[in-house]
Computed example of a mutant assay.
Amino acid sequence: MPRAIWTGSISFGLVNVPVKLFTATEDRSVGFHQFEPESGERIRYQRVTEQSGQEVAYGDIVKGYELEDGSHVLITPEELEAVEPGRSRTIDIEDFIDLDDVDPVYFDKTYHLAPADQAAAKPYALLREAMKDSNRVAIARFVMRAKQSLAAIRVASVDGDGDEAGAGDVLVLETMHFGDEVRSPAAIREMKVLDDGIELNDRERAAAKSLVESLTSDWEPAKYTDTYRERVLDLVARKADGERIVTEKAEEPTASVTDLMAVLEASVNEARQKRGDAPRATSGAGASVTDYASMSKDELYEEAQRRDIDGRSKMTKDELVAALSDSAMAEAS
């Protein structure tokens, strides 16, 4: 059962909506500790002074802000506490703006907003429907963990399984970067090549548009999995079982392609064949059903996962090519 990390209310005009805040995402990255390889002893970090090397207790540490000349201004926890925004249990809506005007680059972390109790359900639903009908997002400020945050409240559609509670439209809160925290791409030197009057002919535009359309599908979050994490966990399991791991030489990067039109046309053809689940046949007796040899190992692994090929995580690139070719030939026959 998820637990609320913040409770308070949304305030807009004279209306207050009691709400609870829940984290909407979780980090599933594989974590490791550090060890000294020869002894197998765990490596731990200590807080020590730069000159004496003596360890300092966490409670005795103060913060230092570095000035341009390299010197530091020391700030105590009490001094920082004196300028904190203060404890607040209100998400104060300052503006409603058009949802399409918000660039996703400003979004930071997502939270679910739930009505705090039964009495809050009606004003919650009223705010949700008003924002949905007007395609608006609310820009607000609130304080969490002694830090003031800018936030956007928007309506999100949540899929539910069967009669699962919570399915439908809900309010979500996105903490946001402040305007001076977002870097302008105009400062990137490499962007300046776009100012040289690049000409795109109609044929190139049509091919690029066709490629986009060929790769267009419905959003299905469940089909996008972290294949790297899966391989790392499989590696850990194999080593835990005592298996000897043989590493492969990294693949050489492929040469850059200069014939853009040829690449576009080939990409459109490949995308259409994948969408239709049709193998890409090559000519000649004994030819491979699909040109798997030209694919990267990651692409091969994802295709093997899609075809549910047993033992795929332990296969080398050549073994994946062979297994996929056999599977494609079996399908075609």
Rank of each mutant, 00 (worst) to 15 (best):
V263N: 09
R272F: 00
K317F: 01
F142K: 01
D308V: 08
R87G: 14
L324H: 06
Q51A: 12
E190I: 11
E299A: 15
T227K: 03
V19R: 04
Y111P: 03
E213R: 14
D159K: 10
E66H: 08
V236A: 12
L300Q: 03
V62T: 10
L264E: 04
A322S: 11
Q305T: 13
R47P: 00
R87W: 05
S267D: 14
Y292N: 03
E331D: 13
D159A: 12
L260P: 00
G53L: 06
P221S: 08
E38M: 11
D95T: 05
N135F: 07
S11T: 14
K147E: 11
I43E: 06
D196N: 09
Y58L: 14
D169E: 14
P115A: 09
A237E: 14
E213K: 15
A165Y: 01
R272E: 15
D277T: 08
A57T: 03
P185Y: 02
T216N: 05
S184G: 06
E94P: 07
E303D: 11
M315N: 06
E213M: 13
F35M: 06
G70C: 09
T258A: 07
R244K: 11
S325E: 15
P123M: 08
A208K: 10
L113R: 06
A82C: 02
D108C: 01
R47I: 09
V236N: 02
L194Q: 06
R154Q: 15
S9D: 03
Y106M: 14
G284N: 13
V105E: 02
F12H: 11
V212D: 00
R145G: 05
K249A: 15
Y58Q: 15
R136Q: 15
G53C: 07
E26W: 04
G53D: 09
A322F: 00
E199N: 09
I97K: 02
S210V: 02
G53S: 10
A330S: 08
P123Q: 10
G64E: 06
